[in-house]
């Protein structure tokens, strides 16, 4: 019997870390003046890039940290399910909290995410 709880915890942590990175990058992108500023597009682009990278990184981390080192085939099948679900959860958490943050700070730089 293998515990899949750490896989879910790690997935949640990945969502949080990548959201933090997205926020830091968004704040680092300077406001641009003029009628056609490019900065909102850049923030949005980085938000989605980090969503994809975070999800893939979470998947790879799960595979290399839990799945491949495991020899028990039953445990492996449980882990692959957990890693798959965890990856989905990571993406969903990233999106949900990203959306919430974007609405909370809608006048600020994070507001450009959505």
């Amino acid at each position: 019997m293998v515990s899949t709880v750490p896989v879910y915890i790690i997935s949640a942590a990945f969502a949080g870390v990548f959201l933090l990175i997205a926020a830091l990058i968004s704040n680092a992108i300077k406001f641009e003046g003029g009628a056609n500023p490019k900065d909102p597009g850049k923030r949005k682009m980085w938000f989605w890039i980090l969503a994809i990278i975070g999800t893939i990184a979470n998947l790879l981390f799960g595979l290399f940290s839990y799945y491949y080192p495991e020899n028990n085939s039953y445990a492996k099948s449980q882990l692959i399910t957990a890693i798959g679900l965890g990856t989905g959860i990571c993406f969903v958490l990233y999106m949900v909290f990203g959306f919430v943050l974007s609405k909370v700070f809608k006048n600020g730089k994070l507001g450009n995410w959505f």
Partner: peptide, 28 residues
């Protein structure tokens, strides 16, 4: 000053659109 410099009114025909764009970004 902000209209002419930051929103590029001195270089272009007008700089008010810069304010509008900023408001739009802020969902206003």
């Amino acid at each position: 000053l902000l209209t002419l410099t930051y929103h590029q009114g001195a270089d272009n025909i007008e700089g008010i659109s810069g304010w509008m764009a900023r408001m739009r970004e802020m969902k206003y």
